[in-house]
Simulated scan of single mutants.
Amino acid sequence: MIASAELLTVPEVMARLKISRTAVYDLIRTRQLASITLGRARRIPAHALDHLINTRLEQEAA
Rank of each mutant, 00 (worst) to 15 (best):
T55C: 10
L33E: 04
R42H: 14
D26Y: 06
A23Y: 05
T30K: 01
R16E: 15
M14P: 00
S4W: 14
I53L: 09
S35R: 03
E58A: 15
H47A: 06
R21T: 11
A34Q: 10
I28F: 00
R40F: 05
A15F: 01
R29Q: 08
K18G: 04
A46T: 09
L38T: 13
A48K: 04
T37E: 03
A62W: 08
H47K: 05
T55M: 04
R40P: 00
A23V: 02
Q59S: 14
L8C: 04
M14A: 02
R21G: 02
Q32V: 02
V10Q: 05
S4R: 11
L33V: 07
V10I: 15
M1Q: 11
H47M: 01
R43N: 03
D50T: 10
R16D: 12
L57Q: 14
R29N: 14
M1K: 13
Q32F: 03
M14Q: 13
A23L: 05
L8D: 03
Q59C: 12
S4G: 08
S35H: 06
A41Q: 11
R21M: 06
E6T: 14
V24I: 05
R56Y: 12
R40T: 11
V10Y: 04
R40K: 13
I44W: 06
E60S: 12
L52I: 10
Q32S: 02
